[in-house]
C-alpha cells in the first residue's frame, strides 16, 4: 500500500464510506422517513462514484470555449466555401449554400489566421468525460421524483397505520 495508491483511490473509498453510511441508516433506523434519507445518501454516493470516474487529471468542465467554437464554425464555413469551387466533398448541399458562403468569404478569410490558432489550441485543452455527467444529471431528477413517490407512500402509511415505525407496522400487520 503505497502513498500513490492511496492518492489514486481515496475518492472511491470516500464514496464507499458514504454509501455504507446510507446503507446503515436504511438497515438500522426504523423510522420510514429516516430510511428514505438513508436511501438518498446512498443515491448521492452513487452519483459521486460516476462523477469521480469521469474526472481527468488537469481536465476542465466539458464546455468548449466560445473562441474555439467560433473558429470551428468559420473553419467549417470556409471549408464549405472551398468545396463550392468544385471539390466534391460536400456536393449538392454546398451548392445551395453558395451565395451565402461567398458573402461570408471575406469575413472568414480575416478570421482565418486566428481560427487556425484557436483550433490548434483546442487540441491542448483536456476535458473531463461528459458521459457520466449526462447519466447522473437525469438520474438526479428521476431520483427526486421517486423519492417523492416514496414519501407519498409514507404519508399514506401514516394515515392508515397511525405510525411510521417499521416494527410497529409489522406488529399491526400480524394483528398484535
Amino acid at each position: 500500500m503505497t502513498l500513490e495508491t492511496i492518492a489514486g483511490l481515496y475518492n472511491y473509498w470516500m464514496v464507499i464510506f458514504l454509501m455504507m453510511t446510507g446503507f446503515y441508516i436504511v438497515l438500522a433506523r426504523k423510522n420510514l422517513i429516516k430510511s428514505v434519507i438513508g436511501l438518498n445518501i446512498f443515491q448521492t454516493s452513487v452519483f459521486l462514484l460516476y462523477i469521480t470516474m469521469g474526472k481527468v487529471n488537469n481536465g476542465t468542465a466539458p464546455i468548449i470555449p466560445p473562441a474555439i467554437v467560433e473558429a470551428q464554425k468559420s473553419a467549417h464555413e470556409s471549408h464549405a466555401g472551398a468545396a463550392a469551387g468544385g471539390v466534391a466533398e460536400h456536393g449538392a448541399g454546398v451548392a445551395e449554400h453558395g451565395a451565402g458562403v461567398a458573402e461570408h468569404g471575406a469575413v472568414v478569410a480575416e478570421h482565418g489566421a486566428g481560427a487556425a490558432e484557436a483550433v490548434h489550441a483546442a487540441g491542448d485543452i483536456v476535458y473531463s468525460n461528459p458521459l457520466p455527467s449526462v447519466l447522473m444529471l437525469t438520474a438526479i431528477v428521476v431520483g427526486i421524483a421517486t423519492t417523492a413517490l416514496a414519501l407519498a407512500l409514507v404519508v399514506r402509511i401514516r394515515e392508515d397505520y397511525g405510525t411510521v415505525d417499521e416494527e410497529r407496522i409489522l406488529e399491526l400487520d400480524r394483528g398484535e
Binding site: T44, F47, I51, T52, G54, K55, V56, G59, T60, A61, P62, I63, Y127, S128, P132, S133, M136, L137, I140, V141, G143, I144
Partner: peptide, 13 residues
C-alpha cells in the same frame, strides 16, 4: 470534479 451541470442540479434538487 469538473461536472458543473450535475453540481447545479444536485444543489437545486
Amino acid at each position: 470534479l469538473d461536472a458543473p451541470d450535475v453540481a447545479f442540479t444536485e444543489a437545486a434538487v
